[in-house]
Design a binder for these strands. Structure first.
Length: 568
RNA sequence: CGGGGCGUAGCGCAGUCUGGUAGCGCACCACACUGGGGGUGUGGUGGUCGUCGGUUCAAAUCCGGCCGCCCCGACCA
């Protein structure tokens, strides 16, 4: 490709509303252009990158035995009503009507459509297992589109679905997909982690998310430094051995704590560590009324864990201050678990404390030297908090570290919930009709592009992993329009590269050298050859890798061999 | 949806408080010089100031409605 015949739309200034580095660089390098909130055009260079990612995904899906198909983006409401998700999915499902006022939606995912296809086409266990996938634009009317392509309202996704007669077969394919995903992200040169995940709105049992590690990630993931354990912090188990609780050494006493409202205030006033305190939160109980949750002062309540508890209402609702005061007689800031008239659930870590400090349920008073069983006799324990760095790994090996991640893939064992709701069955080997076991597997193809930039950039721009680069090589002739020698050498090398099948960009624009260098670096092209009169005089060219600090001189005659080897 | 902020040329911004014929930088076009890291000069192109209404002799500027965009929270590939 010649840049004079291509469209390079780089910008010198960073748009004001781009927050994270990948968004800034994607806009500056002209990969994408915003049309509206969360809606982006992929410009020619950007599309080349997107296609590269797509290609790797496609190859690994095929290798994992999945077959590509293409389903419609517009889907009839009836299918969604059948699965129950027309109501359940909520406003993120972008609904439209046709000219006859029939309801449709723009597909945010395709479980309904694929199940409809399979129930019509597959009748026998002999046709199973079957894995089908597509790479297609998805539409989700996100509450808050953000970070450019990272959380867009329309985005490119690879979605795969597998069908089985047995749980065991599902597990085999799930494992195969898990491996395929790991291969994909490794081939794309990304630092990633598979983590145990919550199944969320899609449903099902077992689930893993694949996260690209990056400080700008929207998710926190916990992983062990002593084993392979990794989980979304929402899900990571906080364990504690209650038999190791120290015996009480103090008697319980009341202390005046005027003006103390927070754990921070309390610790400052008494000069104690936050681990020596307990905070008491009131939430709605499952059958109505309130229930008290006790967490160690330095920990945070995990809403997902809490609402899974049978005594706690789901979704979680924090009690209003009036409700709490009516119950305890005290305002926020002086609450505690002693002598409560409602059930008490204590987080494991808080239950491990002895001689701790908590609110007295009297304004401006706290209790110290409080001990479980002696001072609070009726309570139960549960895992209610989010893990923090340094917690023991739930598998007993090592300690947890917490890093931020960008979710680029998510795989689920769905089981039979969709096939049952939509009556997708086959005959098994005994001639018996059985509901299909189903798995689903998603990859955010467009999000990967942004995630890769988060991990691969420097102060000059993007540094693409070679598998994702829009071009492998840039040939930059200097003053080509004035120097016959430069023009000849550039054209000749360009032609040879094309013959070798190298994806090469010849920057034949009549721009000044600085402009060309900046653009090529901003665009992140992995390899660069500079051709100028100065080096040609000695029969040489200059090579520089995108991540190299310095360029190196190449004999003109050896350039092709060098490139062949360097570019693989 | 709740809280905060912003809408002036393709991009980044000033001008709004204190009303008086719309400006700067980048980009773009032409010419000249220049030619190994976003060069210089001269001359240009491009804006119903988000939108609708109101106040006024006069509105980018004051007042009101609406729309859009961004940031913080609940969602997810």
């Amino acid at each position: 490709m010649r840049s004079s015949e291509f469209l390079i739309t780089t910008h010198r200034e960073t748009p004001a509303d781009a927050e994270i580095i990948s968004h800034q660089l994607m806009l500056r390098s002209g990969l994408i252009r915003k049309l509206s909130a969360g809606l982006y055009t992929w410009m020619p260079v950007g599309l080349r990158v997107l296609r590269k990612v797509e290609q790797v995904v496609r190859e690994e899906m095929e290798a994992a035995g999945a077959l590509e198909l293409a389903m419609p983006m517009v889907q009839p409401a009836e299918l969604w009503q059948e699965s129950g998700r027309w109501e359940k999915y909520g406003p993120e499902l972008l609904r439209i009507q046709d000219r006859h006022q029939r309801d449709f939606c723009l597909g945010p995912t395709h479980e309904e459509v694929i199940t409809e296809i399979v129930r019509g086409e597959i009748n026998s266990y002999k046709q199973l297992p079957l894995s089908l996938y597509q790479i297609q634009n998805k539409v989700r009317d996100e509450i808050r589109p953000r970070f450019g392509i990272m959380r867009a309202r329309e985005f490119l996704m690879k979605d795969a679905y597998s069908f089985h007669v047995s749980r065991k077969s599902l597990e085999t394919t799930y494992q195969r997909m898990h491996e395929a995903y790991s291969k994909i992200f490794a081939r794309l040169g990304l630092e990633f982690r598979p983590v145990l995940a919550d199944t969320g709105s899609i449903g099902g049992s077992t689930s893993h998310e694949f996260h690209v590690l990056a400080d700008s990630g929207e998710d926190a993931i916990a992983f062990s430094d002593g084993s392979d354990y990794a989980a979304n912090v929402e899900l990571a188990e906080a364990t504690a051995d209650l038999s190791t609780r120290p015996a009480p050494s103090e008697t319980m006493s009341t202390i005046a704590t005027p003006g103390v409202k927070t754990i921070g205030d309390l610790c400052a006033a008494l000069s104690i560590a936050e681990e020596k305190t307990a905070k008491t939160l009131f939430v709605e109980a499952a059958g109505g009324g309130l229930i008290a949750l006790v967490i160690r002062g330095d920990h945070e309540l995990n809403a997902i864990k809490a609402e899974k508890h049978s005594l706690i209402a789901s979704p979680l609702r924090m009690a209003a201050e009036e409700e709490v005061t009516a119950l305890t007689g005290a305002a926020f800031g002086s609450l505690g678990p002693v002598n409560l008239q409602v059930p008490v659930i204590v987080d494991y870590s808080a239950a491990l404390c002895a001689d701790f400090v908590c609110g007295a349920n009297v304004d401006n008073q706290h209790l110290q030297g409080v001990n479980w069983d002696r001072d609070v006799t009726s309570y139960e324990t549960a895992d209610l908090r989010s893990v923090v760095a340094g917690d023991p790994s739930p598998d007993g090996q090592g300690r947890l570290q917490i890093r931020r991640g960008i979710e680029v893939g998510h795989i689920f064992q769905l089981g039979s919930q969709y096939s049952e709701a939509m009556n997708a069955t086959v005959l098994d080997e005994h001639g018996k009709s059985v509901a299909l076991e189903m798995g689903c597997y998603g990859i955010g193809v467009s999000r990967i592009v942004a995630a890769a930039i988060e991990q691969n950039h420097d102060d000059r721009g993007i540094c693409w992993p070679s598998t994702m680069a829009p071009f492998q090589l840039a040939i930059v002739p200097l003053n080509m329009h004035k120097s016959e020698a430069v023009a000849t050498a550039a054209e000749s090398l360009y032609k040879s590269c094309i013959e070798l099948g190298i994806e090469v960009l010849l920057d034949d624009r009549t721009e000044r050298p600085g402009v060309k260098f900046s653009d090529i670096e901003l665009l992140g092209i992995p390899h660069r050859i500079v051709i100028g009169d100065r080096s040609l005089a000695t029969g040489s060219l200059e090579y520089q890798g995108r991540r190299d600090a310095e360029s190196q001189s190449l004999a003109q005659s050896a350039a092709l061999e060098f490139l062949k080897e360097r570019l693989g």
